[in-house]
Design a binder for these strands. Structure first.
Lengths: 220, 220
DNA sequence: CTTGACAGCTAATTCAAATTAGCCTATAAT
DNA sequence: ATTATAGGCTAATTTGAATTAGCTGTCAAG
């Protein structure tokens, strides 16, 4: 029974590295430690394995959406929190987002597979867009909206501000997906990005000050 | 003799839409208006067609690099130009960059193919990274460096400033590649992005002043 | 202790797609 | 005028990977 999950797991790894068409069922089987025909005791075809991966990811995705309250009126309740957010916390927010996307193994392999297999079905391109573009933008847009209302940040156009926050993260992510050895560099860039973002968008009184002398905070 | 180029062209289109493995030589042949075996009068294998595309693109790339003086000490001579750059010109710069990437047909198909076929060879991932990440960043970094020296823009960290300029463009590009129907929206976002970018980074005297007045009024 | 279903194996089988063989015509060069 | 070449076609052939057949051992339920 465990085999069934092992198959999905190894298949996902291989698909994300080589693409569906370049992975042979024999490869998957070998990784699992069985022979190709035995695979068919668990899934009726190669395509069925692929489909199962998509479903599994859908399941996880919904689960997490719940956990992260992406679609929660609840989040608004948390508005209070954002009144007191500091630069360090903003960095933490960005880092967490980044590291989650980058290190959650399932997420990472799934994203790489989506990138490669977009064409396999329009549906996959849609999933990719939703998960890595539209949802993050709308979720973070909401957070920044709150921060603006709370007077932590200022911006004429929150949507663009959100783009300025997220697009560099997205870009660094695609870099790391292709060239994992650049991860350390990317993390440094991430932090520099968020610090500069904060300088640019933070409310005058609070931020430019903050920025000019960090020591003030310590003194206080 | 023309057939030889038609083959490359149609093959590129198909590869960029469906990926190498999902395109049959018969498909390519049909588009060209011949039968599959006739293809072999021009290329010795399907792989050879693929390789020829890569080569052709390498050729064009070098050509353009020359034209755009990406690697030119020449560009420095142009420094004067950037002393007098205006917001509108900055928008034009961004738009041109964006529209070139988006509308140059060869470039567009090639980029989509690279996205899909990254795994085909590490080399392809490298080409992608160079062409759509590293080169634009370094080229634009240089331009912004000049603008900073010229006193048009200000920034503590030019590298991050460049990221803030280019990452949104990159992201909008990947959106349009996947969902061409969002192009009009993307163009508007582009312009708003650059205007805000200018507000954020332009030298105080010139812009941030404006900005502060506006936002203060708005805030109170 | 026997039955059946589960999960594995080896040895076919199938099938689609790439490639080759071999033929034909037009045109351009000798 | 003859011949060579380029480029096309139809009809095989090859190949390689997915899938099926059909056998076997294990183990839990009856």
């Amino acid at each position: 029974m465990d085999t069934k999950h092992r198959i999905l797991d190894e298949a996902l790894t291989l698909f994300s590295e080589k693409g569906y068409a370049n992975v042979f069922v024999a490869d998957i089987a070998e990784r699992v430690g069985i022979k190709a025909p035995s695979l068919y005791k668990h899934y009726k075809s190669k395509q069925a394995i692929f489909d199962a991966i998509i479903e599994e990811m859908n399941r996880r995705f919904l689960e997490e959406a719940g956990a992260l309250q992406i679609n929660g009126a609840d989040a608004v309740v948390d508005a209070e929190i954002y009144k007191h957010i500091s630069e360090e916390q903003l960095i933490t927010l960005g880092n967490n987002l980044f590291l989650y996307f980058l290190h959650d193994d399932y997420t990472r392999r799934f994203r790489k597979m989506l990138t490669i297999e977009q064409f396999h079905a329009k549906k996959l391109a849609d999933v990719y867009m939703k998960q890595y573009v539209d949802d993050p933008l709308s979720y973070q847009g909401m957070l920044f909206g709150l921060m603006v209302s709370a007077g932590v940040l200022q911006a004429e156009n929150v949507e663009i501000m959100t783009l300025h926050f997220y697009a560099p993260i997205y870009m660094l992510l695609t870099i790391c997906d292709r060239e994992p050895e650049r991860e350390a560099e990317a993390l440094k860039t991430m932090e520099a990005h968020i610090r500069q973002f904060n300088r640019l968008y933070a409310r005058d009184e609070k931020v430019i000050q903050d920025n000019k002398k960090k020591s003030r905070r310590k003194v206080k």
